[in-house]
């Protein structure tokens, strides 16, 4: 795991390119905004100003917090449930045969339909909101983890049986490391999917959260606020990627070198 100087330089180089491309994007934005001089396309500086005001007033943290809380709860529920069901289907061909049509249907229901149905059936409450997100996300976790469970190495399972690993040791040391990459994939794509769905869920049936706020700004055509909130959200999601997902990935993959 030692970083040679060459690797270090490459990383700095990559970082510079990333910063450069973001600056270029901001510059383009600035040029077009100045050219247009319309409240419908505020300049980057104006957006950052709004971002600051909204943060200081506490509104942005409040709504962002609500959305993040929903995101975390629904993410955890769908990951845990999806992993368990995915393993069961991947290891039991008969179960899989039976339920695979259910999965195909679930995968193809438009997100908006599940959201509406959840609100209609369970009322405009927190439970229905979380459920709608989970139902949207779950099939994809199941399918991804099922793929992993189908490809478990039989030779290692036999080894574990001969050496009397027992269920706990087998799960921890034989199964989990093989499933982990699939669970990570499900988690990555899941996070991206969930935060898009969750805004719609909030827009349709909650009175707080990012989706709710965006809805308000839409009604007043307040583009600067819309962009400010989006920016905050993008930054938060990317931070989660860097501080949680990437380190987890590195730790689990270190044996590959």
């Amino acid at each position: 795991m030692t970083n040679t100087p060459a690797v270090g330089h490459a990383k700095i180089h990559q970082g510079l390119i990333a910063i450069g491309s973001i600056l270029l994007l901001a510059l383009l934005w600035q040029l077009i905004a100045v050219q247009e001089a319309s409240p419908l396309l505020p300049t980057p500086m104006r957006v950052i100003e709004v971002l600051w005001q909204e943060s200081v007033s506490g509104r942005l943290p409040h709504h962002l917090g609500m959305t993040l809380a929903r995101l975390i709860v629904s993410f955890l529920i769908s990951m845990i449930l999806g992993t368990a069901i995915g393993i069961a289907l991947g290891r039991t061909p008969r179960l899989d045969q039976f339920f695979s049509t259910w999965l195909v249907i679930a995968l193809n229901i438009p997100a908006l339909v599940t959201i509406i149905l959840c609100y209609v059936w369970f009322g405009l409450g927190e439970f229905a909101a979380i459920l709608a997100v989970v139902v949207n996300k779950l099939p994809q976790v199941i399918v991804t983890v099922r793929e992993g469970a189908r490809h478990l190495r039989q030779d290692l399972l036999e080894m574990a049986e001969v050496y009397r690993f027992g269920p706990v040791k087998t799960l921890q040391h034989v199964l989990w490391p093989q499933l982990f990459p699939y669970i990570m994939t499900a988690g990555r794509t899941g996070l991206a999917l969930i935060w898009k769905i969750i805004l719609v869920v909030e827009l349709l049936g909650r009175s707080n959260g990012m989706g709710y706020q965006l809805h308000l700004f839409f009604q007043t055509f307040d583009v600067a606020s819309i962009l400010a909130y989006s920016l905050a959200f993008i930054v938060i999601v990317q931070l989660m990627e860097w501080t949680i997902l990437v380190p987890l990935d590195l730790k689990a993959q270190r044996w590959r070198r």
């Binding site: 030779d155 290692l156 036999e158 080894m159 001969v162 050496y163 009397r164 040391h173 034989v174 490391p177 689990a252 044996w255």
Partner: peptide, 15 residues
């Protein structure tokens, strides 16, 4: 207790 040396080593690559 059975010790079994398989044809392939069958070590856990992640341990």
């Amino acid at each position: 207790r059975i010790g079994y040396a398989f044809q392939e080593p069958r070590l856990l690559p992640w341990r």
